[in-house]
Amino acid sequence: MSRSFAVTLNALGLYAIAFVLAAAFAAQFLRHELPCPLCLLQRIQFALLAIGPILNIRHGPRPSHYAMSLLAALAGAAFATRQVLLHIMPGDPGFGSALFGYHYYTWALIGFCIASVAIAAVLLFDSQFKSDDTTQPKAGTFARVAVWLVIALTAANVLSTLVECGLGACPDNPVDYELLKRRL
């Protein structure tokens, strides 16, 4: 795998992360599914996954960059697993609505597992790390748009979370935007 192909794959990974963050926003604003604290933690780990691809695009592929994303994926999988286990008992309706038969936290667990496997698979290709190839491919528009898309969606989460939780602790089962409630 050439360095430029690895950079393209990393850019595609960023678009996948952007898709997940955008889908979470769609559920929040279109279906009024306000994220709970554990849901927010999972979103945070999805955003943190982007560190590896961004560093790979900016500085060239390195195993340490992939390792950072892998750590974020493992933490996210742990958070999602806890939420799955909280609702594992028969008869438990789960938190929020389901999408294609699974709740969002189950999809998050699947997503983190897929990310972990994908990172491990890309790490198998040593040729992308060859040190004699010092020419770092310049990030093209495709990659730069992906980077700024993920950064913008993460920044948008700062605002939405602030409005949802307000200045205090975030409620376990949020039904309204705390900051808007106080203003009204």
Partner: peptide, 12 residues
């Protein structure tokens, strides 16, 4: 509040 701070940290 802590979650907004975490998202801000991730953005940084």
């Amino acid at each position: 509040m802590e979650f907004a701070a975490l998202f801000l940290a991730v953005t940084v």
